[in-house]
């Protein structure tokens, strides 16, 4: 009996000690991303959603450390609220714990799966699941559950093995309780109103393509 209790206590503490340690691979990636002070890129934005039709939009994006990302464009542009935080500052803003969830494959590539749980209630998210490319030291996928604004999924694609910042980002989003004015315009639409009302959620994907990166790291001259 005592022996069993001892074993149980031993394994429990091993587990707890393991959870309280921030994952080394994540820390390495975080450190790499933290070294980026500033970057600029040209972006093209496409929205894939059944209820939105929009041509490819073009803009310029500028990131400054500890500042919100800014955009400039000649035309009207929809800027996603989520998913522009490529350095994942949002996740690391407050103390957090990580849980190793093993390995998942994307294609042939094995990726490390971690859960990130913030320890501070002020954090905007409750839990995040990220997939790490430990070989190339970068994040490939993240799924973040926010406190008030649903969840969103991010998939990051990189052109070269060395790139720290993605060349293509896919952000899935959900719209709650889609409201559209039936009788305002489009008098002769074929919309099935019954069908529309039953859909409280509308899902879509935003595809960002980033090119012409100009990156400044800590200690480098711009």
């Amino acid at each position: 009996m005592i022996r069993h209790l001892t074993y149980l206590t031993y394994f429990f503490f091993c587990f707890v000690l393991q959870a309280q340690e921030t994952d080394r691979d994540l820390l390495a990636i975080k450190s790499r991303l933290d070294s980026i002070d500033h970057y600029e890129a040209s972006i093209s934005l496409d929205i894939l959603a059944s209820f939105i039709k929009m041509p490819t939009k073009y803009a310029s994006m500028t990131y400054e450390k500890d500042q919100p990302v800014s955009f400039t464009s000649d035309n009207f542009i929809l800027i996603p609220k989520r998913g522009l935080d490529f350095t994942l500052t949002q996740l690391f803003q407050y103390p957090f714990i990580t849980l190793d969830r093993g390995i998942e494959k994307r294609g042939d590539k094995p990726l490390k799966v971690l859960n990130i749980i913030p320890e501070d209630d002020q954090a905007e998210y409750t839990i995040a699941k990220i997939l790490l490319d430990t070989t190339n030291r970068r994040i490939v996928e993240s799924e973040i559950n926010t406190r008030n604004e649903g969840s969103f999924k991010l998939q990051l694609y990189y052109n070269t093995r060395q790139s720290a910042l993605p060349d293509r980002v896919e952000i899935t989003f959900e719209l709650q309780k889609l409201r559209l004015p039936f009788n305002f315009f489009g008098k002769d639409t074929q919309i099935d109103r019954q069908e529309l009302r039953s859909l409280d959620e509308k899902k879509g994907t935003i595809i960002l393509r980033l090119t012409d990166y100009i990156i400044s790291r800590t200690g480098e001259k711009r």
């Binding site: 800027i79 989003f173 315009f185």
Partner: peptide
């Protein structure tokens, strides 16, 4: 009013840069 209605839902997931209340909308 129309833009407010149309965009209120999109505001969940997007910021907007640029003005949709322009000459083209009014011609429409």
């Amino acid at each position: 009013a129309l833009i407010d209605v149309l965009m209120s839902t999109l505001k969940q997931s997007f910021y907007f840069k640029g003005d949709l209340l322009n000459g083209n909308l009014l011609v429409y």
